[in-house]
């Protein structure tokens, strides 16, 4: 599927995902693709995140720290229409962890008008758990709790505080997030990419995404970008120079970059909890939902 040339109105490509599902890895790939194989992880060539206070304030002439979150969500669709209007670039690649949700005016928070398409990254939720816990510097059970609850959110500030450089992001549950972005009612094309396919079948998967987004490439350019954005290289770069997008509470952003680690990381109870809550969506995207054999050693309660 190819979504063709960017038009003046429809230039935003949303890079949408639940956290820790390959979004930043894909942005590093895009950076390499658009920058002849060079990556500085602290200066990605993509165009920011939906929840950015900076982008919002720049379009509104407001100090958004004075706003309530529901006011922000009522105004935010217009912000991205405005941004698409004044950027001269042909494509805007914008990361988003918010679910495809609706505001108090019953409009989608993600505006249709400037949107060309979305790439949705999905990863086995059993593997998301430990990575998400590391991101939050929290426990596995806390990560599972957020993934299971219907109104889970990211960057939520206590007691209505609104000072961080990102707004609160309502994600729903892990399944709710996937379902919101892949619902037939979403009025623009959405390509679902599995993290596991990016990992094990890189060339085919990344090529499919590049074609879907309508980016013209030279032969060999995709391979070169895949090589440059190899997980170990990104991890190495973070070790050398740090990574500004890392959660302040977390040790490192890039952790293992593997699939199937959950078998060693989660207890039987934790695995059961995730599978029980997300079975339908997991099966739809080809993730096994039968309980594995767990040895007594690894089935002990894990933090």
């Amino acid at each position: 599927m190819n979504n063709g040339e960017a038009t003046e109105q429809k230039k935003i490509v949303w890079l949408a995902s639940y956290p820790k599902s390959g979004n930043t890895w894909f942005r590093a790939f895009l950076t390499a693709l658009l920058n002849d194989g060079e990556i500085d992880i602290n200066q990605m060539k993509t165009d920011g995140i939906f929840s950015s206070r900076f982008i919002f304030d720049n379009s509104t002439d407001l100090d958004s720290t004075y706003l309530y979150d529901e006011e922000v969500k009522d105004i935010i669709p217009e912000v991205f229409c405005d941004m698409a209007g004044w950027y001269l670039k042909k494509n805007l690649f914008i990361k988003i962890h918010d679910a495809y949700a609706f505001n108090t005016e019953n409009n989608p928070i993600v505006p249709t008008e400037p949107t060309r398409c979305a790439v949705y990254f999905i990863r086995n939720p059993l593997d998301v758990v430990a990575s998400f816990a590391n991101h939050n510097n929290g426990t596995l059970d806390e990560a599972i709790h957020i993934m299971n609850k219907p109104n889970g959110s990211l960057a939520r500030q206590k007691n209505n505080f609104n000072v961080n450089n990102q707004f609160r992001q309502l994600m729903f549950s892990w399944s709710g997030h996937v379902e919101s972005w892949t619902a037939p009612e979403v009025p623009f094309p959405v390509l679902v990419l599995r993290y596991e396919d990016m990992l094990h079948n890189g060339l085919e998967t990344f090529t499919k995404a590049v074609e879907f987004m309508g980016i013209e490439v030279e032969p060999g350019q995709v391979e070169k970008a895949i090589k440059a954005s190899n997980f170990e290289r990104l991890k190495e770069k973070e070790k050398e120079k740090g990574f500004g997008e890392k959660n302040i509470k977390s040790e490192s952003f890039f952790r293992k970059g593997k699939s199937g680690g959950w078998k060693e990381e989660l207890s039987a109870e934790q695995i059961r909890s995730v599978i029980t809550h997300h079975k339908t969506v997991m099966e739809k995207y080809g993730y096994p939902t039968e309980m594995p054999e767990i040895s007594t050693e690894t089935s002990e309660q894990k933090g």
């Binding site: 379009s59 509104t60 002439d61 407001l62 105004i75 217009e78 229409c81 405005d82």
Partner: peptide
């Protein structure tokens, strides 16, 4: 100049 919620 029209920005979001504001004209100048």
């Amino acid at each position: 100049v029209k920005k979001v919620k504001v004209s100048i």
